[in-house]
Design a protein around this nucleic acid. Structure first.
Lengths: 255, 255
DNA sequence: CGGTGCTTTGACATCGCTCAACGACGGTGG
DNA sequence: CCACCGTCGTTGAGCGATGTCAAAGCACCG
């Protein structure tokens, strides 16, 4: 399932279109953004805690994670990012990183300097709101994660994350039926969900046994969306996607 | 400890000054924001899940909470807001609320319409970045909460929240020595921390016994900042305050 | 064919939850 | 003024969900 994009900024335009409404002028401005592209190996820090950044990154291919490092080598993964996401927009207005940003898989990443972003903002003030909105949606994801960690048990937490990651990939055309890539290892999923990898493994077995979901070789397959969403108490409102499509019991194949 | 402000927008200016740098022109623009003021009773919803809003609110006095409601009457408090905070800025760019906003105590709240904000943004584009930054700091608070819920045990979680709430109030001049208001009831703190009120109560006893913190009648008193911060593994970076002041062992009295 | 890293499983420990009761306190009405 | 009541805080006993530790299985790869 390769990322189906022609140019980096077309990918960004597609992404922004899935959470906002992009006018033709805005779209053109996006497509004109100067950028550089780099391929980074898996498990490689992009920006580190404490650093100042003068550019923001756009994921073109692969998965990126945002994480906080605690003492004793413990780690909390704060969020996952996929093709089309700009995980580093906050550096536009916050001077120091308060966490790390790292690749999870081999990644293709585009970098846009803050100067370039400010230039486009000056010429197309509309875009400010659209990218601001993007960071607000990021915050909405955080809120949902807080709710999960605070009030759901392990099973619901895992189910909820799977629903979220499936729908986000679906909006970017990265799913195939009820399957989608899920490259993080179990220990990484555990670090995101506030669980140990041992317990996560047992939860995965439960999900498999109950015929809700299977996870194998980096491929997630949802066998029963309705039941999975019920276990997760999943409500897609927080995703703020323009296309509200929750998979029907018999979901449409994505184009 | 009454909120020491003369006018609503002076309070906002003071707040923004504590996390950014406000030029004189920006400051004047803030002071000129048209608004209305209302007093709301405690435990009163300001905006509800699913609603659309055409205004944003500014807390002038009292405490506000953002919360998600789950089935079975369960609730996760996502964050607390105090005088100077604008908890509702996201409604500028997100059409539907994905959670609730409610008063915790009796509150004085100022409301500014989105139209008015957009007007000021047009005349003072600087302010866009400053308010955007404010929402990004909100997100930084979420991240820290995720880390707490995911990777800290109850004791550290509680200690961390107390450190955060103390420093945020300190930046607004709402503390007195190492004491500050903490109006939420134990059940509300528990709902914010992913604990039951019973267990939170035991944790508070531990904190009291270990002479770190006492909480009594809505007043939080920190007895040993260094030790409390150590238990919490507290690092104030995520607050993104311009004045970095962490209380010394013998903290300066706030003016 | 022997690493190396990830997943899976078992046995046991522990943190935090549940249920239940009681105490402290303030408001209200007689 | 006092009895009553509701709310909040406090405590105990037992239980359940999740963590810890340790080992084995398994796939990939040199």
């Amino acid at each position: 399932m390769p990322t189906p994009y022609s140019t980096p900024m077309e990918l960004l335009a597609r992404k922004l279109d899935s959470c906002a409404r992009l006018s033709d002028a805005d779209r053109a401005a996006i497509l004109g953004l100067a950028h550089t592209v780099r391929v980074l190996p898996a498990r490689h820090d992009i920006v580190r805690f404490g650093e100042r950044s003068n550019q923001s990154c756009l994921v073109l291919q692969g998965w990126v994670s945002r994480y906080a490092a605690l003492s004793e080598g413990e780690r909390q993964i704060l969020s996952f990012y996929i093709a089309g996401d700009m995980p580093d927009l906050q550096s536009l207005h916050l001077d120091r990183m308060d966490h790390h940003l790292a690749t999870l898989t081999t990644c293709t990443i585009a970098f846009v300097t803050h100067d370039e972003l400010h230039r486009v903002f000056r010429q197309h003030p509309n875009l400010i709101g659209i990218l601001w909105r993007d960071t607000l949606i990021d915050a909405a994801h955080y809120r949902e994660r807080i709710t999960s960690l605070g009030r759901r048990q392990a099973l619901g937490r895992v189910a909820h994350l799977f629903c979220e990651l499936y729908l986000r990939q679906r909006a970017m055309g990265l799913t195939s039926g009820l399957s989608c890539p899920l490259p993080p290892k179990q220990s990484e999923l555990a670090d995101a969900l506030g669980l140990t990898s041992v317990h996560l493994n047992r939860v995965l077995r439960t999900l498999r046994t109950r015929r809700l979901v299977t996870l194998n070789g980096g491929l997630l397959t949802i066998e029963d969306w309705d039941e999975l969403a019920a276990v997760a108490e999943f409500d897609p409102t927080f995703l703020h996607q323009t296309v509200e499509g929750v998979p029907a019991s018999e979901p449409a194949e994505t184009v």
